[in-house]
């Protein structure tokens, strides 16, 4: 499959729409919807004329980013670029979903450069807004909040993604053909390790007493009891309710349970 210039630009625009903070679909519509390879891959599939295959590949590429978290201004991976350009490459080269994950991984790493660049350059607009604030020019601040940063973001997203899609897809076919045996295996191993980062970042963000004990409980529910995640979530809500109610009692009543809540954070 060859990708036309128009298609490449359209894929770049999908990447832009999913980038964290673009206002067109709300913040939620960016980071939680179009940024996810499951959705981005399907949209790319529509652009390239094969939404079903795009959906399958997007779903596969999404796996390493299932617990992706962006908090406190950081984004350690870029599922958006992996989901858009990665799916386009995979469709163009006609590779299996498993191989798609591995060609998307480097994209997810490279994309973080775009994030750092826009987070840094956007500081300029805040300083301009400071000057407008001195004059009480609220309309100017609102303009500076939306128009210049979004033009910049559009440029930073669409150009690299479209170029990578257009010129990369042919190169990738050659690379994939050579990417067998150990190199492919290594990329698969890395793909299996990466969800740990999102999960650990979430755990760190929680950072409360007992976190690791609850984490272990959830882990055992799945590996030994073979429960699906949704069942664990319901169980988790029940446990959380009782834990909260019990730990909120006056100290005398929970003397026996106090040790459980205190002794865990030291380990990790």
């Amino acid at each position: 499959m060859t990708i036309s210039t128009g298609q490449a630009v359209a894929i770049g625009i999908v990447y832009y729409l999913g980038n964290i903070g673009t206002p067109w679909l709300s913040l939620l519509g960016s980071i939680s919807v179009v940024y996810k390879p499951l959705v981005a891959g399907t949209l790319v599939g529509f652009i390239l004329g094969d939404p079903v295959q795009g959906c399958i590949i997007g779903a596969a590429i999404n796996l390493p980013y299932v617990a992706f978290i962006s908090a406190g201004g950081t984004a350690p991976q870029d599922p958006g670029l992996a989901g858009t350009v990665g799916t386009a490459w995979a469709l163009a080269a006609g590779v299996s979903p498993a191989a798609a994950v591995t060609i998307a991984l480097p994209l997810g790493l490279l994309g973080t450069m775009i994030w750092v660049l826009h987070m840094t350059l956007d500081v300029t607009f805040v300083h301009m807004a400071d000057k407008a604030a001195e004059r009480g020019d609220l309309d100017k601040i609102c303009f500076l909040h939306v128009v210049p940063p979004q033009l910049l973001m559009f440029f930073l997203c669409v150009v690299p993604a479209a170029v990578a899609t257009y010129f990369g897809s042919e190169a990738v076919q050659g690379i994939i053909a050579n990417l067998t045996g150990t190199p492919l295996h290594i990329l698969e191993v890395i793909g299996g390790l990466l969800p740990a980062l999102g999960i650990a970042m979430n755990l760190r963000a929680i950072g409360r007493p007992g976190t690791l004990l609850f984490f272990m409980a959830g882990f055992v529910f799945v590996v030994y009891l073979k429960l699906p995640v949704i069942a664990v979530a319901v169980l988790g809500a029940v446990i959380a309710y009782f834990y909260t109610v019990l730990s909120n009692q006056p100290p005398a009543e929970i003397a026996g349970a106090a040790g459980v809540a205190d002794d865990d954070e030291e380990d990790f």
Partner: peptide
């Protein structure tokens, strides 16, 4: 407290399923 507890349990399940 409640959100942290439930979150940690779900993360344990995700770790088992996706890592």
């Amino acid at each position: 407290t409640g959100a942290s507890c439930m979150g940690a349990i779900v993360l344990g399940a995700l770790s088992a399923q996706f890592v």
